[in-house]
Amino acid sequence: MKIKSNLAVSDSGFIFNPSNGDSFSTNTVGSDIIRLLKAGNSFDSIKKEIVEKYEVDEILFEKDFHDFVSQLQDYYLVSND
């Protein structure tokens, strides 16, 4: 899965999709995940970084990660390439 390459994500968690003008807000965990996805990181390396940085266990992270990714897909923030 790839995040749209032209997606703009600010440090404050503001997401702007230049393809359709949609904008969203996410928390710091969300913006970190998007940044890591944009950089092409694998699920395992994202899990490692987030679990280390935030107080979260791996099982909960996996569940929340898949929920989050599903939201990204619903909002057309994922590239179809």
């Binding site: 032209n6 230049p18 393809s19 359709n20 003008g21």
Partner: peptide, 20 residues
């Protein structure tokens, strides 16, 4: 441009330039 705010007459009251 994508309309961000539309009046009851369907006119754009706010909008943003997009890349498509």
């Amino acid at each position: 441009m994508r309309k961000l705010f539309i009046t009851d007459k369907g006119k754009a009251w706010a909008g943003i330039t997009i890349e498509e």
